[in-house]
């Protein structure tokens, strides 16, 4: 999960850290969870391209939603032309 310094000599010269290593799973911010109804999904990829968190993955027949970084904003459900995504309150 990226670079965590443990002593002074671990520090880079100036704050320069390897990118692409988010450590906090922002999924725990979520109140509503997007749930996909695969039967309704036409794989148009609009939810995929609009998702700010890049948590929707392309699939062969339908998209797949992952939850580690999903903040539950609901854009995917709002934009889905076939209403294939439902926002369900987290238990």
């Amino acid at each position: 999960m990226g670079f965590i310094p443990n002593k002074l000599s671990d520090l880079p010269a100036g704050a320069a850290f390897e990118g692409g290593h988010p450590t906090t799973h922002t999924g725990n911010w979520r109140i509503f969870k997007p749930v996909l109804n695969k039967d309704k999904c036409r794989n148009c990829l609009l939810c995929w391209i609009f998702c700010p968190e890049a948590v929707i993955k392309k699939g062969s027949d339908n998209v797949e939603i992952t939850y580690d970084f999903c903040k539950g904003c609901g854009i995917c459900a709002n934009e889905c032309p076939t209403k294939a995504i439902e926002m369900v309150k987290e238990g």
Partner: peptide, 26 residues
Amino acid sequence: LQDITEEELLYGSLACAGCGGIIALR
């Protein structure tokens, strides 16, 4: 959209849910 890469070069931001700026950058 089908031709656009699946490679994600921006993920795990601490932006507010539903941030338009993040969508633009991604």
